[in-house]
């Protein structure tokens, strides 16, 4: 097996696994940059996956080939709406943000499985017929070497994820909104003094995280599992959280980390078919993202520091 063959297997697979992580990690970045810890990302992905699959199954005959994309929009909207619960609890009611995130995770699994049984009268949905499928991207896949490695047998969603990461970087670091977002996350009192509506910015950020998490779940369900059951989303949300931290709360960093974690995940699945990896137990690959995140937090791989006001409810007038 030549290097070329290996790359043309590994890279598309990496990008397939990374796309949901990128979206969800970006969601986490928005939320935490505004000072709201969101460990409910897992639950938001569950809601996104559930919505996308149900929408897809219901409307496949209406939208035809466009179904997965429209389903993704539905997942985005419902994910955004669901995250309002977290926003109300942690911003308005000053709940412990970690606890509220745990409640989101429990609630998402409960609600989505309850509704699956309510709608379909069984524990899991049927397999969707119109999922995201592998494509050779026109024109780009004709480029010699690069075309075969990066643009053949791949998914459009992976490229959308990378583009959205770049947009997120632009929004957070180059626009007035981004500056406000970051200031609210670092020093809400100072931001408030300057006339920034802390509550409003935080609400927007949390809803954005819900929308992006919903998209992440929707992509995962429609390109990897193709149905929805209790085990559809099992830890991807927490892995996205890890990617966000490993990427040091920076959109492009989060994207890089998500790609790397996607690489580790895909190797743990396709590794047995690659010549130099078949003897490595895949426990190392499976555990690698989490171990690396712990090391990054500890400072062994460049210290990762959270936004200063992250996790602290803002109470007007208190010092």
């Amino acid at each position: 097996m030549s290097l070329m063959d290996i790359l043309s297997i590994v890279i598309p697979s990496t990008m397939l696994w990374a796309a949901p992580l990128i979206f969800t990690a970006l969601g986490g970045t928005f939320s935490e940059r505004s000072g709201v810890v969101n460990i409910g990302l897992e639950g938001l992905m569950v809601i996104g996956a559930f919505t996308a699959i149900v929408f897809n199954l219901t409307f496949a005959h209406v939208f035809g080939e466009m179904t997965p994309w429209v389903s993704l929009l539905a997942a985005m909207v419902i994910g955004g709406l669901f995250s309002v619960i977290h926003a109300v609890a942690s911003i308005t009611f000053r709940a412990d943000q970690t606890v509220s995130g745990v409640a989101i995770n429990l609630l998402a699994v409960g609600v989505s499985l309850f509704l699956v049984k309510f709608i379909y009268d069984k524990g899991q949905t049927d397999i969707i017929q119109k999922g995201f499928s592998k494509v050779d991207i026109p024109l780009l896949s004709d480029i010699p070497i690069i075309g075969k490695i990066f643009f053949s047998n791949t998914y459009y969603t992976s490229y959308v994820a990378i583009i959205v990461a770049i947009i997120a970087w632009y929004v957070i670091f180059k626009t007035p909104f981004g500056l406000r977002l970051r200031s609210v996350g670092e020093h809400p009192m100072a931001a408030d003094t300057m006339g920034i509506n802390v509550t409003r910015i935080r609400y927007i950020a949390v809803i954005l995280s819900g929308a992006l998490g919903g998209i992440g779940g929707g992509i995962y369900a429609q390109s990897i599992t193709s149905d929805f059951s209790h085990s559809t989303i099992s830890g991807q949300g927490f892995m996205a959280l890890a990617a966000m931290i490993f990427g040091k709360w920076h959109p492009l960093g989060a994207m890089g980390a998500a790609l790397f974690f996607g690489f580790a995940q895909s190797l743990s699945i396709i590794g047995s078919s690659l010549p130099f990896l078949e003897n490595i137990p895949n426990v190392y690959l499976l555990a690698a993202p989490y171990v690396l995140t712990i090391l990054a937090l500890t400072g062994f791989i460049g210290r990762a520091d959270a936004p200063k006001a992250s996790g602290v409810p803002y109470i007007k007038g208190s010092r």
Partner: peptide, 28 residues
């Protein structure tokens, strides 16, 4: 619950999540 009343048992997971939520938001 599914056997005797035909209600999905996940309803209890929802109730537990809501209880956590209401305790967390006890400020209200």
């Amino acid at each position: 619950m599914p056997l005797e009343a035909g209600v999905p048992n996940e309803l209890v997971d929802i109730i537990i999540a809501l209880i956590v939520f209401f305790v967390a938001a006890s400020y209200m």
